[in-house]
Design a protein around this nucleic acid. Structure first.
Lengths: 198, 198
DNA sequence: ACCTGAACACCGTTCAAGT
DNA sequence: ACCTGAACACCGTTCAAGT
């Protein structure tokens, strides 16, 4: 680690000038999120981590709000797996599991995505995906929209509750079983609605 | 308004000394929430509104976190209606409608309750109520817990989305119809599960 | 008990200026 | 284009001191 820095300094002794691009800033913000959590993720701390003045960040990002939106989108994009063509129930179930794992992979992941969505910036790609699965399987537009939102809210709420408990008491219950049960309730309800419209 | 102040000054000219109790502080915080939103609700601004130094608040409240938890609990308590004994579906539906209206009654209501819950302070009374309705109607403890959480997350997510859009585009869709549809999906799913266990 | 006054260690953001 | 340095207008919280 120190070794790598030494090499850089030798190759370019006078001005290291590690200038950053937007993706570097977003990437470092994700690392920082995992280290210190959402409440510790400040513009000043992020700038410090990059070895840069706070004001320099505003060359890559218009505001903290935009930064958080970009972080949310990047986290969601990283968690994206290849699509499999299955029955609509299994396809939605897999999407929800993927979304759950993606949120769980990062500290305060659910809160971060909630914040981004609340401020109207990013974080709604999974929602659109689930709505189109429903629409391709006989749901009218209204049911597709509301059904996707209901699934999304279930996943989000579940992960938010889990992450709110903290790492400490994370044991206790079988959270995966609870997740499967809740998901089954919502999917079962959707099945009844789809049957009516079919 | 100015008149009332004048009367007070005449009756007690030298030291008005409007000393506050905890409930006054919580109450003023709720008013401030509605005026400036969650992001504008700071300890310093609240102190200013009460005509008091910021440090004075810490006599009534241990921290901002505790204040927000107390505000969440008070909002929920104010929204509480008398219980009617109905079939389990109608009873849960009514509880969810009550919860939705309570959150909608205050600016950033959903975000406030999410924050309180995330920090493990208050805001889970409706959850416990819904779980006991399910338990009294044949759900085993696990289904009662998970079912209540699923309903709560649906209501919370719905209101959070709605409030995130802001007052501007609040028109558009029929949000009440969407809410009823989503609620019907979850209740329908619960009906299937309860039938299995009955 | 309830409050003041002053301080500490932070925030997000802007803006002129440098290279 | 990317960054520095300095400033502005804020934060939550603590603590000695007053009444």
């Amino acid at each position: 680690m120190g070794y790598l820095n030494d090499v850089q300094v030798r190759l370019c002794p006078v001005s290291v000038t590690t200038r950053y691009r937007r993706a570097d800033v977003i990437g470092r913000a994700i690392d920082l999120l995992d280290e210190v959590g959402l409440s510790g993720l400040s513009m000043r701390r992020l700038a410090g981590d990059l070895g840069v003045q706070p004001s320099a960040l505003y060359h890559h990002v218009a505001s903290k709000q935009e930064l958080l939106g970009a972080v949310a989108d990047e986290i969601l994009a990283r968690g994206r797996r290849s699509t499999e063509v299955l029955g609509w129930q299994d396809e939605l179930r897999l999407t929800c599991l993927e979304l759950r794992d993606t949120m769980l992979r990062h500290r305060d992941g659910a809160a971060l995505i909630a914040l981004a969505r609340a401020e109207g910036v990013g974080g709604d790609e999974p929602l659109r995906r689930m709505a189109s699965v429903l629409a391709f399987n006989g749901a009218d537009p209204e049911l597709a929209r509301v059904g996707a939102r209901t699934l999304f809210h279930f996943v989000f709420g579940h992960v938010a509750d889990r992450q709110a408990q903290g790492v400490v008491s994370a044991g206790g219950r079988d959270e995966s079983a609870d997740f499967a049960t809740g998901l089954g309730i919502v999917l079962g309800g959707l099945e009844g609605r789809l049957a009516q419209h079919a």
